[in-house]
Design a binder for these strands. Sequence first.
DNA 1: GAATCACAAATTATCTATAATTTTATTCAC
DNA 2: GTGAATAAAATTATAGATAATTTGTGATTC
Lengths: 222, 222
Amino acid sequence: MTAANEDTIANRISRILADRIVTGQLEPGAKLRQDHVAEEFGASHVPVREAFRKLEAQGLAVSEPRRGVRVASFDLKEVREVALMRAELEGLALRHAVPHLTASILEQAEEATFAGDNSRDVRSWEEANRRFHRLILTPCEMPRLLAAIDDLHAVSARFLFSAWRSEWEVRTDHDHRAILGFLRQRNTDNAVAVLERHVQWIGQKPVKGPTGSTRDAFAIVG
Amino acid sequence: MTAANEDTIANRISRILADRIVTGQLEPGAKLRQDHVAEEFGASHVPVREAFRKLEAQGLAVSEPRRGVRVASFDLKEVREVALMRAELEGLALRHAVPHLTASILEQAEEATFAGDNSRDVRSWEEANRRFHRLILTPCEMPRLLAAIDDLHAVSARFLFSAWRSEWEVRTDHDHRAILGFLRQRNTDNAVAVLERHVQWIGQKPVKGPTGSTRDAFAIVG
DNA sequence: GAATCACAAATTATCTATAATTTTATTCAC
DNA sequence: GTGAATAAAATTATAGATAATTTGTGATTC
C-alpha cells in the first residue's frame, strides 16, 4: 500500500512537472503558480515550492525572488551550450565506461537503436535514444557525472520536443551504429569522436508559429 | 534599507551552510536537523528545507526520504570524478572565452595569481584561485556551463580544506603563470592543455587522524 | 484630449505556527 | 541477551498570517 510512498510528494510533483516542461505541455515563460499546482495535486504549497527548487536546479525553471517561478525559456545559444556540454561530458563518461562494457550491454544498446529507428513518434524515439546513451555510459561508474548528463539530456529532449512536437519522420541512426561498431572493436578514440560529433549535431526545421508564420526551430538530435 | 533583502532567506541559509560544509566546519556525514538550523537562523523550517534542497542539488548534502539530510561524504573516487569533470568543462569554457579575453582581464588574472602565491592560509589561497579561474572563464558567456563549473569548484574547495585545514605551505603557482603566458600569445590549445592538466592534479598529504594515527589525505589543488 | 504619475486593491509569494506520520531509541518482558 | 512494545524526537505536510509586487483606477499636468 505504501509502495509509491517511497519518495516524498515534492519529488513526485517535481517529476511530473519536469515531464510537462520537457514535452512542451508547459510552454517556455509560462508562470508556475504554486497555489494552482498545489490544488491540482491535492497538496499544500510547501511541497510545491520544494519541487520548484528542484526544477530550478535542473535548469527547467527560473525563479525571481518575490515574483514567482516561470518555465525556463531558451534560445539557439542555449541549445548550442547544452550540446557542447553534453559532448564533453558524454565523451568523458564513455572513455571511462569502455573497460566495463560487456557484450550483453552492447546487445541491449543495439536493440535500443533498433527501437529508435522504428519509432513512429518523438516520444518513443526520445525514450529509445535516452536508453541507448544511458546503456553505454552507465558503466563508467561516476554517479555525479551521470547525474549531470541526465539533467542535460532532459534539456536536450525539451529542445527536441519543441521542434518536432507532432510530426516525426522515421530515420535510421547511422551514428549509433557506428559507435556500436567502434565499441565492439574496443576502438575507444573513434567511438568517443563519433559520439561527441553526434551529440553536437543540431537539426533545424521550419515550424509553423502560433500566428501561422513559419520560423526555424532547432533541436539537438543525438 | 532592503538592500540585503534581494534574495530569500532560504538562499541565505543555503549559502551559509554551503560555506560551512566547504570549509569543513560541518563534517561529512553530519546530520542536518532542520529544527536546529531553523532556530539558529531565527526562521522556520520551511525555508530551511528549501535550503537543503539546494545543497542537495549542489552535491554538498544527501537526503534520504523520511530520514533527514546529512552532509555528503566523499572518497578519493569522487575527488577524481570531480577533477575530471572540471578538466573537461573548464577546457570547454576556456576555448570559448579566449576570443573575448582582454588585456585588462589577463592583468587582473595575474594579480589573482600573485595574491594566491602570497596567501598565508588555505582560505585566502582558495579565494584567489577561484578568482583566477573565474576571470579567465567568465568571458565564454555560457551561463549554464559557468554555473556547473562553480558547483564543481565548491566541491573541489571542500576537498582542499579537508586536507589543508590548518597548516598551509606557501608555493608559487607555475601553472597559472604558464596559462597566462599562452593566453597572451593567443595560443588556445596550449592554454587549454595546461589548464586541463592543472585541474586534474590531485595532491596527497599525510594528515593526523582523530586517533593520532596518520592517513593520506587528498585534494584537488588547481 | 492624451499621457504620466500616484494611490489603492487584489493577487501572489513567503514565512510562521501547528498537526500528523514516521523513524529511532529506550524499556520491559521473556 | 534478544525481542517486542512504548515513548520520544524528527521529518513531512497543512493551514493560516504577513509582506511585497502587480495591476487597475483616478487625478493632475502638459
